[in-house]
Design a protein around this nucleic acid. Structure first.
Ligand code: NAD
Ligand code: NAD
Lengths: 215, 215
DNA sequence: AAGGGTTTGTGCTCACAATTACAAACCTTC
DNA sequence: GAAGGTTTGTAATTGTGAGCACAAACCCTT
């Protein structure tokens, strides 16, 4: 059975809401409540979950702890993922210092830069390696994910190198339409594109039309 | 006529490719070439553009300069947009220092933080203001876009304040399912969700299955 | 000026995703 | 233990977007 990518994209949303509920001590939650919490219809949630099994109880809802465990297992969040950051400039520094990855099982274990002033620096328990050593290091010590935060001009090059080293998931902050071979997964973070599409709505709504932009 | 949001989301992609082509001195481009450049089918591009008019010439293609101007006009990129950054921490600093916004007409004109050590600092020709002055400042000196880079816990609060100040477009980096009233546009940057959905594919492909994740 | 080679714009079809709607299952209370 | 009130899981329907295919339009060459 083939699961639609949109469904996979929503599952992490559900896990995050469930984590919050669990921290609040909640035992069960209905698709209704989860829906209003996330801005998604209850039927959507039920249908998405039904791709993977039957996790709820009629008349009652979903056991928060149980559903969270199931989703963690489905998404592969019940293990550690090793990541490398390429490009430790202004943005790379913020990424290295971000405390949101670790608790979700995503650990940054390598960082690379081309600037001689950066190479060798210790940041967040990590020693910045030379960009020249990227291939050698990753071949010896593989990572699951590559985070690309280098200037646009060399991003495709870096991505190609990552692919050659067997990296199969890439998170790219570079503003280019990067290409990867099939079997490699790429997600782009594109704040400028997001702003540009919102500009359209700003321009074309006389101060208060309905119909919010997809987020 | 109502234009599908997905179409609006693709237009900025086209403008970026066209800009590159223009810098290379190209005069005309076909939907075919633009398509392979962006990983989109030519028919998709033609259909998207046809929502707004007839910009090409049969047998020839699109005039790069002309199409770029048209798209800039359609998206509202032929003017300056004023932005405020809320939260000048690790990420906020990278945003303030990012040179990718200006050339596209998005100018950061205000920055706010709650940390006394940050308030008053001059960064990139900007003086960091106190978070307490957010409402007062924006009411006197409105901005078009708010960029939210504060901790998750207070993000909804900041967003509510922005909305109250008449901000109608918000780019949020906070990992929360923020809600805004209709007529306000919100886009979220969510690296963790992107990683989590890629984890699913990493886990469920025996090292080389086709079907790349939507990016 | 005619013909061959391109490429656009768009009606039509197909695929897929969201929503609706309801029977089945469950809990609680009396 | 029966009745009333919830909520799930899913079959069926609706809605929407992507791709196909082709006539019309254009360029260039001879
Ligand atoms: N700063 C932001 O908020 C932001 C936002 C969106 C996108 N981006 C994108 O992220 C990327 C980085 O942005 P930034 O603001 O950090 O720029 P930056 O110039 O501060 O950092 C780039 C870093 O990459 C390093 N580098 C150059 N070549 C390299 C190589 N071959 N291997 C490894 N490292 C190399 C440089 O030494 C530098 O430290 C850019 O593509 C930018 O467009 C940044
Ligand atoms: N660093 C990253 O790469 C990254 C990536 C994705 C998401 N985020 C998100 O971006 C946000 C900021 O992350 P960060 O790493 O910069 O954290 P940070 O702690 O370095 O920065 C947060 C800043 O917000 C300021 N602040 C607190 N309350 C405020 C208020 N009421 N008004 C204005 N400013 C206030 C703090 O003083 C601090 O300077 C968080 O929500 C985080 O989850 C960060």
């Amino acid at each position: 059975m083939e699961i639609p990518p949109v469904v996979i994209d929503r599952l992490p949303l559900y896990t995050r809401a469930l984590s919050t509920l669990e921290e609040e001590g909640r035992d069960v939650v209905s698709s209704q409540e989860l829906g209003t919490l996330l801005g998604v219809t209850p039927a959507q949630i039920r249908k998405d979950l039904s791709y993977f099994g039957r996790f709820g109880k009629q008349g009652r809802g979903y056991n928060v702890r149980k559903l969270l465990d199931e989703l963690h297992h489905i998404l592969g969040l019940d293990r550690q993922w090793r990541m490398a950051v390429i490009g430790v400039g202004k943005l790379g520094l913020a990424i290295l210092g971000y405390e949101g990855f670790g608790p979700q099982g995503f650990r940054i274990v390598e960082a690379f830069d081309a600037d001689p002033k950066r190479i060798g620096q210790r940041i967040e328990n990590l020693t910045i390696r030379a960009a020249n050593d990227l291939e050698k290091t990753l071949l010896k010590n593989p990572v699951d994910v590559g985070i690309v935060a280098v200037p646009a001009g060399i991003a495709q090059n870096v991505i190609d190198t990552l692919v050659k080293c067997g990296v199969r998931a890439i998170l790219s902050y570079a503003p280019i339409p990067a290409r990867v071979p099939p079997g490699v997964y790429l997600k782009r973070i594109e704040p400028v594109l997001a702003l540009q599409s919102m500009a359209y709505y700003l321009k074309n709504s006389p101060r208060s039309t309905a119909a919010a932009a997809r987020s």
